[in-house]
Design a protein around this nucleic acid. Sequence first.
DNA 1: CGCCGCCTCTACCTTTGGATAGAGGCGGCC
DNA 2: GGCCGCCTCTATCCAAAGGTAGAGGCGGCG
Lengths: 211, 211
Amino acid sequence: MTEPPIRLLLADDHPIVRAGLRAVLETEPGLVVSAEAATAEEAVVRAAEGDIDVVLMDLRFGSGMTGAEATAAITARPDAPRVLIVTTYDTDADTLPAIEAGATGYLLKDAPPEDLAAAVRTAAAGRTTLAPTVADRLMNRMRMPATALTLREIEVLVLVADGLSNRAIADRLHLTEGTVKSHLARSYTKLGVDSRTAAVATATDLGLIRR
Amino acid sequence: MTEPPIRLLLADDHPIVRAGLRAVLETEPGLVVSAEAATAEEAVVRAAEGDIDVVLMDLRFGSGMTGAEATAAITARPDAPRVLIVTTYDTDADTLPAIEAGATGYLLKDAPPEDLAAAVRTAAAGRTTLAPTVADRLMNRMRMPATALTLREIEVLVLVADGLSNRAIADRLHLTEGTVKSHLARSYTKLGVDSRTAAVATATDLGLIRR
DNA sequence: CGCCGCCTCTACCTTTGGATAGAGGCGGCC
DNA sequence: GGCCGCCTCTATCCAAAGGTAGAGGCGGCG
């Protein structure tokens, strides 16, 4: 006897990527692409209809809802399909919200087709597949929670990212310039950098500040 | 009598994207995908073999040569194929070097398949297709040259945004530190700011650099 | 209560970055 | 040929930022 096929929903705003996923996955036995969605909102609606086993979800859509938000909306329902993230980006700012939102797996678009198909089957079974770079990142995060900036440090760093000088930040927050320097110096140590621009760059990568 | 088909080379580091391009383009009459390349270096070698009419080139590869560099290398030869950029990014930092390098057209990956096929035919005929957002950007650039940073200025600013010091940027680009300062000073004037962090902030807002 | 983390501030010194004012080379354009 | 924009480089001066090494206040927690 044969297993029922795994039914897929492709959610990506790029027609080319959807076509690529379809081409790669439909040659696999036991996988069927049941639907496509060009926006995150569309994906949420379509996933709620109940005839999908695994959603392949991009994280960034041109506008509107993000992939992480859509993932949260989808997994919040009972009997929700599994959501497998398939995206180009692997910074903490992307991965953490997605995992938080209940994604079952996280793959990068440079993955070879075999890995993709394998990850889909793994996801359908409710188990997790992580891209190696994402796994590395998570492990590092567990090991060194040193990158935990305090509220005040982040507050200062955000103003730095907006291009303000220490003097201007001090005025804005009603501090002395020396205090601002103190906060920054501690941030630099925690982030392992030695300049304000480098701090902004790595804090952005880590998802500690937005932009 | 029938025209000879247009022979294509797909250069992109994502197997999924290559599959998508292939799926979309091979259903078009008169188009044939002759080869694929997963790195920019590979694309240069393959394009030199002489049996290609149009190269569809991504701009960012995981490592090594960039798409813009590969485009320059390809178009430098006599009887070179046309290069059509197909990428996700539309900031000045991406588009200007590519156009500079001799690309015949510039499309974004969210383009509908019909546009893609049309752009390929246009490129094969030696004429240009630009994605609307890219065209807008170029027009604005013509109109208000105030915020028109030069290539070199953007190049330096991107490294500043990555957190590098003037010294480090100088080493990276094989310049003196003084030259880096010159480029930055001019950028600051054009952007109306007076510090590197402020320059990064406003350049990001203006879409001159990514992140 | 005592410890600890966070926030605030001070002082001194070094390094980096920014402002200014040049100059020379090179390539494109009229 | 002459002009102009871009890129490169130099030199000096001043301001800003970073490194180091503190100290005191405050609130939470065991």
